[in-house]
Design a protein around this nucleic acid. Structure first.
Length: 595
RNA sequence: UGCCCGAUGGUGUAAUGGUAGCACAACAGUCUCUGAAUCUGUUUGUCAUGGUUCGAAUCCAUGUCGGGCAACCA
């Protein structure tokens, strides 16, 4: 069997998948329906990728469905820019993997009815929006009022906070708690009509002001917000709270398993309260919580990412150093690597810190298999081969990917003047240095062995040129091809090389836990996280396409820079810029760093 | 001085009362026209104390440590 054959990894197992499998087996639900419900107030990041892979992974493994839903109940924070980027990022991450399980809807339909791509029959589909359910939510709220389970409260935000009490001590009931159903109905309707200014009244659930769970102390269902919503415009001035909107949205869409992160654990009793208070006919969804991802050397909260963007500490949400999906994509990380990562870290309720090396390993494993090998010199020194005539050109074959021979070979030119990387020559090398040194020999990858005869320096003593002799007998197929030397280095022909900007991205922070010990995460930004060099590349790289992945041999993985565009269309003329996705492992550098 | 949740090598995770396994990291070696990849090997763990049981990482009790909860945010 070829090692390039896509192997089917065993389906991941975790406590959530166990629950879903159990509910399917018991017949509680005939089909699993999950959902991915981001609020469109920022860009998706690798933490969301964990959730997407979980929710869509379950849909994929159980032949169920996963709805994409914008949780847009707070007009003051949300924007269509985010709606669009979220759709693009989800599509990118699940394409060819679980996109056939993606539940969306027909535009205009507010019933919660999902349509799978296979059922679209030519219709265009769009994600679900919590704001599409505002009418139904309102009707349910009226029902809660009628049942005596909700009331209009006139307390100010400050008063409400005071009445709520603290976790250790019970709260006290609002003086408005016992209004009549008629008065509540009337007030609520007038709230909806826009009669009252922001902050003057709320609709509250009536549960238990003495509950040890503070989220059960009559939490708010609706607040007044005279604001323009990115989708419903000025139609509403009354907006439901997350805790109320979420269970109803889930129910309306027939969600069976509502998977969220641990901080919502304490909200679960309220989630159940809303649904149970309504005497709904269908089987209710179950909320299940798991630990969010925290990854070393980065920050994950939208607030902090927004801060990096707004303060210009990065170039945007899609800066290749950002943990956002758009940033990772621009950096050259493929969805396959993100999915492998999600499978590798698992799903539990334990709040740990995942080492970046796990993620980097997934990226390298993925890229190693697909990346086209190329020769590129990042920090050049000139080599002159004194026994090669000017104008003399030899053409050598170079394989594109040693693990995938079907990717073929290319010709590379070998001439009198070459560039090699400055790392690959040392005048006074340390022990075990296998590269070029005065009087030493090294193999030029795909070409032949050269010997360094002379070191030319400028007035300051800096090395400007190496005069060497090439032994063409040692080239592939040559009489002495089998000759062994310790080192093999990469190079490009000076006459053929093209120039390009190469951006050497690195970790954004110098500390594994940037915000540990209460420090400001911005105080540990890595000043060398985005170095730029002008590199000399083999000419085939001029034809690089966006979808290509390259390994600059002995250097790292690179891809063409493609800034995010909301329209999905790349700018007409793209200058040749390569982004470093990740360096190759470098045990020599590691060895040196020890000393 | 409340409530909810959690704790398995350095890190993440598996073992669902019956041999503590896997991955990453680290280290050593192999191989190499990439100091990459590959391949081989090594080191390191059940938070503590009691209890139940023929048998406990798993069940129970107590404690310790960690996370979360007091927006008209999600």
């Amino acid at each position: 069997m070829s090692e390039t054959e896509p192997t089917t990894p065993p389906a991941p197992a975790d406590f959530i998948r166990d629950i879903v499998a159990g509910d399917l087996q018991s017949g509680k639900h005939p089909l699993s329906v999950t959902r991915f419900p981001p609020e469109p107030n920022g860009y998706l990041h690798i933490g969301h990728a964990k959730s997407i892979c979980l929710n869509f992974g379950i849909a994929r493994e159980t032949h169920g469905r996963c709805n994409l839903r914008m949780d847009d109940t707070n007009p003051t924070k949300e924007d269509v820019e985010y709606v669009e980027s979220i759709q693009a990022d989800v599509d990118w991450l699940i394409r060819g993997w679980a996109d056939d399980r993606l539940g969306r809807k027909v535009p205009g339909d507010v019933s919660g009815t999902a349509v799978l791509p296979s059922e679209a029959s030519g219709r265009s589909l769009e994600p679900f929006f919590a704001s599409d359910y505002f009418e139904q939510m309102l009707a349910f709220a009226v029902e809660l009022i009628r049942r005596g389970k909700a009331y209009v409260c006139d307390l100010t935000p400050e008063q409400m906070s005071e009445y709520r009490g603290v976790p250790e001590r019970p709260g006290k009931p609002s003086p408005w708690r016992d209004r009549s159903v008629e008065e509540n109905l009337d007030l609520f309707e007038r709230m909806r009509q826009g009669e009252f200014p922001d902050g003057t009244r709320t609709l509250r659930s009536r549960i238990d002001m003495a509950s040890p769970n503070i989220h059960l102390r009559d939490p708010a269902l609706y607040r007044i917000r005279h604001a323009t919503h990115h989708r419903t415009g000025d139609r509403w001035c009354l907006y439901p709270m997350y805790d109320y909107a979420h269970p109803i949205s889930d129910y309306l869409e027939g969600i069976t398993h509502s998977i969220c992160t641990l901080e919502f654990e304490i909200h679960r009793p309220f989630y159940d309260w809303v649904l149970q208070s309504l005497d709904l006919p269908r089987t209710l969804p179950r909320q299940i919580e798991f630990a969010r991802l925290s990854l070393g050397y980065t920050v994950m909260s939208k607030r902090k990412l927004l801060q990096l963007v707004e303060e210009g500490l990065v170039t945007g949400w899609d800066d290749p150093r950002m943990p956002t999906l758009s940033g990772l994509r621009r950096r050259g990380v493929r969805p396959e690597a993100l999915r492998a990562f999600a499978a590798a870290i698992g799903v539990t309720k334990y709040n740990g810190l995942t080492e970046v090396s796990v993620f980097e390993g997934c990226i390298r494993d993925d890229l190693n298999l697909v990346a086209l090998r190329r020769l590129a010199v990042l920090r050049p020194i000139k080599v002159v081969l004194t026994n090669i005539a000017e104008g003399e050109t030899h053409w050598f074959d170079a394989v594109n990917n040693p693990s995938q021979p079907e990717l073929g070979t290319r010709k590379i030119a070998f001439t009198r003047e070459l560039w090699i990387d400055s790392d690959d020559f040392m005048e006074v090398p340390p022990p075990k240095y296998f590269r070029l040194r005065p009087g030493g020999e090294v193999r030029l990858k795909y070409a032949c062995i050269i010997r360094c005869d002379e070191v030319i320096k400028d007035a300051t003593g800096a090395v400007v040129e190496l005069r060497c002799t090439a032994d063409l007998e040692t080239r592939s197929g040559g009489a002495n091809a089998a000759k062994k030397v310790k080192g093999t280095i990469h190079w490009v022909s000076a006459a053929h090389a093209i120039r390009a900007e190469v951006r050497l991205y690195d970790r954004l922070f110098t500390e594994e836990a940037p915000e540990a010990e209460g420090r400001d995460f911005k105080s540990v930004l890595n000043p060398e996280s985005a170095l730029t060099v002008t590199a000399l590349l083999e000419p085939s790289l001029a034809e690089a396409r966006q979808s290509d992945r390259f390994q600059f041999e002995r250097v790292g993985y690179f891809t063409l820079d493609v800034p995010y565009s909301p329209t999905g269309v790349a700018p007409a003329s793209v200058p040749l810029i390569f982004n470093r996705t990740l360096g190759l492992k470098d045990s020599w550098a590691k060895e040196m760093a020890k000393k």
